[in-house]
């Protein structure tokens, strides 16, 4: 489903995993229709023809743009040895972004998701932050059975700079800096988590895919023309 659909589009019809998407001619213009998960969207595209890019995007816009933070809760705790560097694979939720392209420009046309929607609080109500919530199993190698329309695989490098064994049950990221890469079989992300003290960790993303030849996704926040660089997030309320 992911990829670039070149013009002429008339008609474009995609049905996959409960998603029905179509772009059809209506007089001189194009009619965009999408149904998915009990919701439907119709938009009129005032152009005779255009390209469409479909790729996984940061899970920020659905169901509402409430928070840029993503908390991934581990199904089982991870212990990291003192001064150790470990690599694990976890899942993360993705939204599906539909971008319209043409005249050397592109913009976000629609965004929706098949991933479970849940939010949580990291910290306390006074000083904490609201995060998108995702529960993930822990893998030591890249898992195969993943629905790429709803989830991606994150390679997480955990760097323990302390002199103690550290237990990790969750990690929090600033999704603005997410660099998602994809191909036909996999949606991926690389991230680091640096344990600074017993209670504080720093997380950030790496701008590359976990396998060779993966394409980089267009980002929702690049489209919004926000100056997004690779952002670090400091987890000050424990991990």
């Amino acid at each position: 489903m992911y990829g670039y659909y070149k013009p002429p589009l008339n008609p474009l019809r995609i049905s996959k995993g409960g998603i029905n998407l179509s772009i059809e001619k209506e007089n001189n213009y194009l009619q965009y229709k999408r149904t998915c998960c009990d919701s439907s969207v119709e938009k009129l595209l005032l152009t005779e023809d255009c390209g469409i890019i479909i790729n996984p995007v940061e899970p920020l816009k659905t169901p509402k743009d409430v928070t840029p933070y993503l908390l991934i809760d581990f199904e089982k705790a991870v212990f990291v040895e003192p001064k150790g560097v470990s690599k694990i694979y976890i899942t993360f939720p993705v939204d599906i972004g539909i971008f319209i392209s043409g005249h050397k420009n592109y913009d976000l046309l629609d965004v929706f998701t098949l991933a479970m929607q849940k939010f949580t609080l990291y910290g306390d109500p006074g000083s904490g932050i609201i995060c998108k919530y995702h529960k993930s199993p822990i893998y030591t190698s890249i898992p195969e059975e993943i629905n790429i329309l709803s989830e991606g695989i994150m390679r997480l490098i955990i760097i323990n700079t302390t002199d103690r064994w550290e237990e990790i049950t969750k990690c929090v990221f600033d999704s603005h800096g997410m660099k998602i890469y994809f191909d036909e079989k996999l949606v991926s992300l690389k991230a680091n988590m640096k344990l600074i003290t017993d209670n504080i960790a720093e997380t950030d993303f790496v701008d590359s895919g976990i396998q060779k030849g993966m394409k980089k996704s267009l980002e929702v926040y690049t489209v919004a023309k926000l100056p997004v660089t690779l952002k670090r997030f400091t987890m000050e309320e424990g991990f």
């Binding site: 409430v66 939010f119 949580t120 609080l121 609201i130």
Partner: peptide
């Protein structure tokens, strides 16, 4: 419900 927080 998505907006009922997981934690608390």
């Amino acid at each position: 419900h998505p907006f009922v927080l997981k934690n608390p």
